Simulated scan of single mutants.
Amino acid sequence: MLIRKFKINESGLNRFFGPLEAKIMDILWNDVEMTIKDVQQVLDREKLTNFNTVMTVMNRLVEKGILQKRVEGRSFLYQPIQTRHEFLNMQSREMTNELMDEFGNVVVSHMLDALEDVDDELVAKLELKIKELKKEL
């Protein structure tokens, strides 16, 4: 379930989803399974949207392969196919691979420049990964 449209000027889940999709995914990633009505009620606390809109968006997320649904009695229960961590990990890995394929050395240079703004633990992880890669060669 790779998201093809990454929005640079957005933040958080809005980089991958539309605003309502992001809110729905945020709700579902914080619960186990929910019906459309359950999700709509959470959104309704903020007066965000009606049932039909939520139903349409959730079913589109199913079509995109982001949510799965199953029947229980007369209701459909929805849940994300991946955890939030799995989703973000996959998206960032794919994005990094695409940037490396297209821009190579420039991307590495910018990533190294960005290390000035990160903590020492991340730099240590990078150094360990580089040592591992050198051993494989």
Rank of each mutant, 00 (worst) to 15 (best):
M1W: 02
R4A: 11
K7T: 15
K7G: 00
N9L: 14
N9C: 02
N9E: 13
S11L: 09
L13H: 04
N14G: 03
R15L: 05
R15D: 01
F16L: 13
G18I: 03
G18Q: 03
P19Q: 07
E21I: 04
K23E: 13
I24A: 07
I24N: 03
I24C: 09
I24H: 04
D26L: 09
I27P: 04
N30R: 10
V32Y: 11
E33S: 08
M34G: 02
T35K: 07
I36S: 04
K37Y: 08
Q41I: 04
E46C: 03
K47H: 08
L48Q: 07
T49R: 07
N52G: 05
V54T: 15
M55V: 00
M55C: 08
T56N: 13
N59G: 07
L61G: 02
L61D: 06
V62N: 11
V62M: 12
K64Y: 08
G65A: 07
R70G: 03
V71E: 13
R74D: 04
S75R: 15
Q79R: 15
T83I: 11
H85L: 10
E86Q: 15
M90V: 10
M90D: 14
N97L: 14
E98F: 09
E98C: 00
D101P: 00
G104H: 11
G104L: 09
G104K: 14
V106K: 14
V106Q: 12
V107L: 11
S109Q: 12
S109M: 13
H110W: 04
H110F: 15
H110V: 02
M111G: 08
D113P: 00
L115Y: 06
E116P: 01
D119A: 03
D119M: 01
L122T: 14
V123F: 01
A124H: 09
K125Q: 13
K129Y: 07
I130N: 05
K131G: 02
K131S: 12
K134C: 00
K135G: 01
L137I: 12
L137A: 10
L137M: 13
